[in-house]
């Protein structure tokens, strides 16, 4: 069940990223829905799930993106693992701590990928500070919303069940 949830979340994030994200966000900045999904899974399911989701999402993005396969994979694996450690060590149930985790996850990913490309690529990426900041903010907001939605759904379903039972009686 855990594995299915992991695979489905990553698949949905990648599908949305490759089909809809380019229409939603214009310009040099953007959102990384796969990173949001990896961080979310790390926080909710623990470090092992974070590692697997980071590896799957990162390698898939690398293959679709055109860079060195493994750079994004390594970055997202680190992010997923650390998100898992944070989620299992601290109580991250409030909006602000979650926002900080997603924000930090984006900065960490950008740091790792940019660092690796500076080491390996003769033409390393030009990283705009404002673009990174915008992406971090967008990812953090999406992450917080994702938590709100995923935590709100069971309550709504329970309330609906309660209402329908009341009607039967």
């Amino acid at each position: 069940m855990k594995a299915l949830r992991l695979v489905l979340t990553i698949a949905v994030a990648l599908v949305l990223q490759t089909t809809l994200a380019r229409f939603l966000v214009r310009g040099s900045g953007g959102v990384d829905l796969a990173l949001v999904a990896v961080t979310y899974l790390g926080l909710t399911l623990g470090p092992t799930a974070g590692i697997f989701s980071g590896t799957i999402a990162g390698l898939a993005q690398d293959s679709l993106g055109g860079g060195i396969v493994g750079v994004g994979g390594l970055a997202k694996t680190v992010v997923g693992f650390l998100a898992g450690i944070v989620g299992s060590t601290f109580i991250v149930s409030q909006t602000l701590p979650r926002f900080v985790v997603f924000f930090g996850a984006t900065l960490l990913q950008v740091g790792i990928t940019t660092g690796l490309y500076f080491l390996l690529d003769p033409q390393p990426p030009i990283v705009g500070r404002y673009a990174v900041l915008a992406e971090s903010l967008a990812n953090a907001l999406l992450g917080v919303v994702l938590f709100q939605v995923s935590e709100g759904i069971p309550g709504i379903l329970d309330r609906r069940r309660g209402v329908s039972r009341g009607r039967v009686r």
Binding site: L14, T18, G30, Q61, G65, G66, G67
Partner: peptide, 13 residues
Amino acid sequence: IGSSATTDFKTLT
């Protein structure tokens, strides 16, 4: 039929 999966690379499928 698709765009790049990451903002680091500007590609289309």
